[in-house]
Design a binder for these strands. Structure first.
Length: 893
RNA sequence: AGGCGCGUAGCUCAGUUGGCUAGAGCACUUCCUUGACGUGGAAGGGGUCAGCGGUUCGAGUCCGCUCGUGCCUACCA
């Protein structure tokens, strides 16, 4: 028996165990075992954002508890940790931290190193390579901070299995994936209108977009019709008037049928545009007739694609109005000079400025009759703009609405494959199951292929170059791909096969593909990153498909979806068998905690104040998929449980400290109430196991906790005097109690080990590490390698032949005795002169077996307990008592 | 506007296939000053289970509608 402390100091103890675990191979994956003997987790790589928040602690602990359970069940655990460091969030942070901007046209400066910027430093430009190195520096620091937090929290991660989405391994697999998808025909390149963020100046995918309710205004604008009439369209984007390529109304709309196949003339710019019928025009909305512009929205893009008309691009990649030349190219006009004059007021303006300016121009008398035959019109704007609020598409990380801009991009084909992707979703078990609906809805609602190229820097480059023709033109139609053996490549510094560096960007030579991949193009490969897909078939076979994908619900559309899609495209498999969805942490006002809202609680203080075990306890109380309000009182409950575990263990193990108890076999549990306790514990064990099998750690904890408090409050109180070996207690009866106590404690510690790994390990080390028969996983006698309790552990228990819950009955009697003492404002040890217990006939024999323990626990003097059969109803209660307390606190005779 | 959740004590939440005289913890009130535990223990008060209607011997639980609330998706004329 190890010396154990009088008081529990969680901070000290937790730190010391974290250190010991770090030095051991407790959590390492053992290669060479069969797939079915392993349990493999696809850990979410956290965005290394520089700030840790309580939401991280929450969901990662959920996964850890399941993993610890599986480890105790004997599985070979693969529990890796990745860091999501590539992508925009890092770039943005680096830009601010060092006050730098990336200018890809600069060349690398190896003498330069980043330094922390003082407030309001003006940004300086650095080369692509310098920029990328700065990103690497920052993320490494953050990854250390995360690792420290994870270790302190007790996540049982195998730290040998680490990856960072920007590291060379991940770049290699990402490029391999790209080439594989290209070879399988899932990838194409296309120059077409794509959603574009004008601040980050990059293309985006559907999953990156969110709607935000934003203010806008309907501008009613009169268009002339060639031949002398006019109509009014209603638009929120008058600045796109210059890009108008057509006007459409619903084919059944009688108001406008007469105009179909005629030509309209736009105000200000005098462009002749066709008037056509189109189903997508809603007669109820606005004036029922609308202008199609290149491009105002997705509907414009769709319509344009089938129209055979050209593009009039007026918004630049930076979100400002482009310089345009009227009278030539697409911008023909019936009065080019006038059009150019109007437009000169708009050139270079940002979209929202141009909108205001156009409205002014349209409202100015005399600016308008550029039409053919409208001498009576001098102002195209009809009435005042009418303010509205409407949803507008934004990049989820952006500040200005997205635009549709024509650029060359790489796409992964998904629209064609909705059906098989829906099927894949059905093969996966979603926990809770209704989360499957989210996946299903998302896939059904997809309307764009996945744009995977981004015009950014800190990401995985495409392993692609293009030939430069002798004419100097770039030949995009025959890309040059890197060979698989060369991966990862950086096309900026590596050359395509058969070329040398001096041919870069020269006629007859080559140029690199300038883009990087969408961060999800890498994150969607987390299972393959860990399994070494394409590189190490043996390891891949040992861990793929994985067992568990934990994640939160808002990224079902991205992370879950893309991962499922890739696994299907690469190998026609599901990436994992189970998806487990954690809810969100809500602040006390029931808003989601997030950095941008400034309502984030940092985990560090909580761990200091309440201990890791207590914080873990709080996370364990939250059921899967259910959002949880941040509530400090739950930490206190967790701390209380860990204190109770400590004290109860100290007490129980006290019996084993000084004397050796010769036989601890379950056969020695001969007293009925002891057997009753153990058989109820067996039920608890079975229910906790069932719950854990469904990843329902919350119910597992709940039933264990309930049982444990009953153990402390009722069972221990009832039998402790017998366990002391008080006068008149036979050795057999005492031994019965001791064995039950030991088995009970040994079981509770293991039940709580996944939730509270520190306190349970601490207690286990005092005694069970040396004595427990459940330490059979090797040389390390950590509780975390002991075996999870099973119903069969109790099979040595002698059958009682009856189902009565003796502990419950005894608890009921004791409770009534306590109530009597409490009502009389006496202490609990206050003696009882006389105790009458009435029970139903069916329980008479049962209670007889409890009499001795009840007399001792209730401090009934002179064995004055009278047991009677109740001859009247008991009002639904098990027992009725009448209690006479002693007058004075006399010593027991 | 559709889809998916949720609405149970002051607060945070359990409540399996309908059997409930509706539970727990926190908070509150009273008591106990401790032979495992004052970072504790015991006892107690507190609820028309959002509302209405239906199925049933019986509904917190199943069905329908309504209200409130949250998320996901759609919606830039």
């Amino acid at each position: 028996m190890k010396e154990f402390p009088k008081k529990y100091n969680p901070t000290e103890s937790e730190q010391s165990w974290a250190k010991k675990w770090q030095q051991s191979d407790l959590y390492s994956f053992k290669s060479g075992q069969a797939r079915e003997e392993s349990f493999v987790v696809d850990t979410p790589p956290p965005t290394v954002s520089g700030s840790l928040h309580i939401g991280h602690v929450f969901s990662y602990t959920h996964t850890d508890m399941v993993t610890r359970y599986k480890r105790m069940k004997g599985y070979n655990i693969m529990y890796p940790m990745g860091w999501d460091d590539n992508g925009l969030p890092t770039e943005r942070r680096v830009q601010n931290k060092f006050a730098i901007r990336c200018n890809p046209s600069l060349s690398y400066d190896d003498s330069w190193s980043p330094s922390e910027a003082k407030a309001k430093t003006k940004s300086s430009e650095v080369s692509r390579q310098n920029f990328i190195e700065s990103c690497g520096l920052v993320t490494q620091e953050d990854e250390k901070a995360f690792e420290e937090l994870w270790r302190r929290l007790g996540l049982s991660v195998d730290w040998d299995e680490q990856y960072a989405t920007i590291d060379s391994h991940c770049r290699k697999i990402s490029q391999l994936s790209f080439l594989d998808l290209w070879n399988k025909g899932f990838i194409y390149q296309n120059e077409s209108p794509t959603m574009w963020d004008v601040d980050f100046q990059t293309a985006l995918a559907q999953a990156d977009i969110e709607d935000r309710e934003s203010p806008g205004a309907y501008h009613d604008i009169r268009f002339a019709v060639d031949g002398g009439e006019s109509f009014v369209i209603s638009t929120t984007r008058p600045e796109l008037l210059v890009s108008c390529i057509a006007v459409v109304a619903h084919p059944d709309d009688e108001r406008y049928q007469k105009f179909f196949n005629k030509t309209a003339v736009t105000p200000l710019f005098g462009a002749k545009v066709p008037i056509r019928p189109s189903e997508h025009a809603d007669p109820e909305k606005g004036s029922g007739i609308l202008m199609v512009c290149t491009f105002g929205d997705a509907a414009d893009v769709d319509w344009w694609k089938t129209s055979g008309l050209g593009i009039k691009q007026s918004i630049g990649k930076n979100g400002r109005m482009l310089e345009l030349e009227f009278g030539s190219g697409p911008f023909s006009s019936i009065d080019s000079a006038k059009a150019g004059e109007f437009y000169s007021d708009l050139v270079g303006l940002k979209v929202h400025q141009a909108r205001k300016k156009v409205a002014e121009l349209l409202a100015t008398p005399g600016t308008c009759p550029l039409n053919v035959d409208a001498t009576s019109m001098d102002c195209a704007l009809v009435g005042e703009p009418k303010a509205i609020s409407h949803p507008v598409k934004y990049y989820e990380k952006g500040d200005r609405p997205i635009e549709f801009i024509t650029t060359r991009q790489w796409f992964v084909e998904i629209l064609k494959h909705k059906q098989p992707l829906l099927e894949q979703g059905k093969k996966i078990a979603w926990h809770p199951s209704h989360m499957h609906t989210r996946y299903h809805n998302w896939v059904e609602g997809l309307n764009q292929d996945w744009c995977i190229s981004r015009q950014r820097f800190f990401g995985v480059p495409f392993p692609v170059w293009y030939k430069v023709l002798d004419s100097g033109e770039v030949d995009f139609s025959n890309p040059l791909f890197a060979s698989v053996e060369k991966l990862p490549v950086d096309p900026f510094t590596d050359c395509p096969e058969g070329y040398s560096e001096n041919q870069r960007a020269r006629p007859g030579g080559f140029v690199e593909d300038p883009d990087v991949m969408d961060t999800w193009a890498t994150s969607s490969l987390t299972p393959q990153l860990v399994s070494n897909w394409g590189l190490d078939e043996k390891k891949h076979g040992e861990v793929f498909p994985m067992d568990l994908r934990p994640q939160s619900h808002e990224i079902i559309r991205t992370w879950a979806f893309y991962t499922i899609a890739k696994a299907w495209m690469h190998s026609n498999e599901i990436p994992w068998k189970n998806v487990v969805i954690s809810g969100w942490i809500l602040d006390p006002d029931r808003k989601k905690m997030s950095k941008s809202k400034g309502n984030v609680v940092t985990p560090q203080n909580l761990l200091d104040d309440y201990s890791s075990d207590a914080v873990r306890y709080w996370t364990a109380r939250a059921r899967l998929g259910v959002d949880t309000a941040y509530d400090e009182s739950v930490f206190k409950v967790g701390r209380k449980l860990s204190t109770k575990l400590f004290n109860a263990s100290k007490f129980v193990l006290g019996f084993f400290a000084e004397e050796s108890v010769s036989s601890l076999s379950l056969e020695n549990v001969t007293v009925a109430v002891d057997r009753s306790f153990l058989s109820s514990l067996r039920k608890t064990v079975e229910e906790a196991s069932r719950s854990f099998e469904k990843f329902d750690y919350a119910t597992a904890l709940s039933v264990s906790e309930q049982s444990f408090w009953n153990f402390c409050d009722n069972y221990l109180e009832l039998i402790k005097i017998r366990a002391y070996g008080a006068e008149g207690v036979s050795n057999d009866d005492r031994l019965s109690a001791l064995v039950a106590l030991r088995v009970g404690l040994e079981t509770y510690l293991r039940l709580f080990a996944p939730v509270m790994p520190f306190i349970t390990e601490e207690i286990w080390s005092w005694y069970f590490a040396d004595t427990s028969i459940f330490n059979h996983h090797g040389e390390n006698n950590s509780i975390h390698l002991s075996s999870w309790p099973e119903g069969s552990d109790f099979s040595g228990l002698k059958e009682t032949g009856q189902e009565t819950d003796l502990l419950g009955l005894a608890g009921e009697v004791l409770s009534q005795v306590r109530t009597a003492k409490s009502d009389a404002q006496k202490k609990l040890k206050w003696p009882v002169d006389n105790l009458v217990v009435e029970v139903g006939k069916e329980n008479l024999d049962s209670v007889k077996k409890l009499v001795d323990d009840i007399i001792r626990a209730g401090n009934v003097l002179n064995n004055a307990l009278e047991l009677r059969e109740a001859n009247e109803g008991l009002d639904g209660k098990l027992v009725r008592t009448s209690i006479i307390l002693a007058e004075e606190e006399v010593q027991k005779a």
